[in-house]
Simulated assay, not measured.
Amino acid sequence: MTGNKPMTFLTRRATTFLAAALTLILSAFVALPAASQEITPEHLAMARKYIDLTDHSGIYEATIVQAGINTYRQLLPQNPEIAEPLNKAIETVISAYKGRKGELFDQMARVYALTFAPEEMQQIVDFYSSPVGQKLSKANAELNSTIQRVMNVFSVNLNTEFFAKVRAELKAQGIDT
C-alpha cells in the first residue's frame, strides 16, 4: 500500500499540471473572440436561457457521477474495507455539487453569446425551428468542440477537487487513505 503513495502523488501532480495547462489553453481560446466582441449582460442572459431550454443538465450530472466513480476506483483498491464509508463520503461530496451547474452553464452560454448576436439568440430562444434555429444546428458541431474543451477542463479540475474532498470526508471519520 505504501508503494502506491508515490504513484498517487505523481498522478495528482500530473493531473494538476494537466488541469493548469488545459485552463490556460481554454482561457486563451475563449478570450480571443471576446477582445473583438463585447458581450452585454442581456446577450449573455439570452444565451444562458438557450442553454437552459436545451436541457444540457445531463452533462453536468454525468460528469459529477463520473468523478465519484473515478474516486471510488482509486480509493477502494487501496482500502477494500472502507467500501461503505467511501460510498457515503462520495454521496456527501456529490450532494455538495448539486445546484452548482450554473457555473458550468454560464461558461457554455458565453460560447454561444460569442457566436450569435443578441437578436439571433432571441430568435433561437423564441423560434428554435426558424431559419436562425437551423443556423444554430449547423453551428453546433463547431460549438460542441469548444464546449467539450470546457467540459475537459471542468472534469480534470473536478476529479482532483472531488478526490480531495472525499479523502477529507473519510479523514473526518478517522479513516486515513
Rank of each mutant, 00 (worst) to 15 (best):
D106T: 10
P33R: 08
S36Y: 09
F163G: 04
F154Y: 14
I25Q: 02
P77M: 07
I175H: 08
L136R: 15
L26R: 13
I25S: 03
D55P: 00
A141G: 11
M1A: 09
G102A: 14
F127C: 12
L22H: 04
T40I: 08
M46I: 10
E61H: 09
R73N: 13
K138Y: 12
M46P: 00
A47G: 12
P80R: 01
L136Y: 11
A21M: 07
S129A: 14
Q37A: 13
L158Q: 02
N152G: 05
K98R: 13
M7Q: 13
S27P: 01
E84C: 03
F29A: 09
A83D: 10
I175F: 06
Y60Q: 01
G102T: 14
D126S: 04
S130I: 05
I124G: 08
T11E: 05
K138R: 13
F116E: 05
A96R: 10
L143Y: 02
Y128K: 15
K49I: 04
D106S: 14
F127T: 10
L86M: 10
V156F: 08
E61D: 03
I51C: 09
L22G: 06
S129P: 00
F17L: 12
K88M: 03
N140F: 08
T63H: 04
N79E: 03
A164E: 07
L26K: 08
Q148I: 06
Q107P: 05
Q123A: 12
V65L: 04
T15A: 15
T40F: 09
M7K: 15
A96C: 06
T92L: 01
I175N: 10
Q173G: 05
L114V: 12
P118V: 07
M46L: 15
I94F: 01
L44P: 02
L104N: 08
I90Y: 00
T63F: 00
F17H: 13
S129Y: 06
Y128C: 10
A113I: 04
F116S: 14
F154S: 11
D176Y: 07
E61I: 07
Y60L: 03
R73A: 11
N87W: 00
T63Y: 00
Q74A: 15
L26S: 12
A47W: 12
A34H: 01
E120T: 12
Q37S: 12
G68W: 00
F154V: 04
V150L: 14
E42G: 02
A20S: 14
A31G: 05
F116V: 10
Y72K: 12
L32E: 01
T40Y: 09
A172Q: 08
D176A: 15
D55I: 06
I82Y: 10
P118Y: 12
R100E: 06
L10G: 01
Y128V: 11
L75T: 11
S145M: 14
V132F: 04
A47P: 01
T11S: 12
L10C: 04
S130F: 05
Q78R: 02
H43K: 04
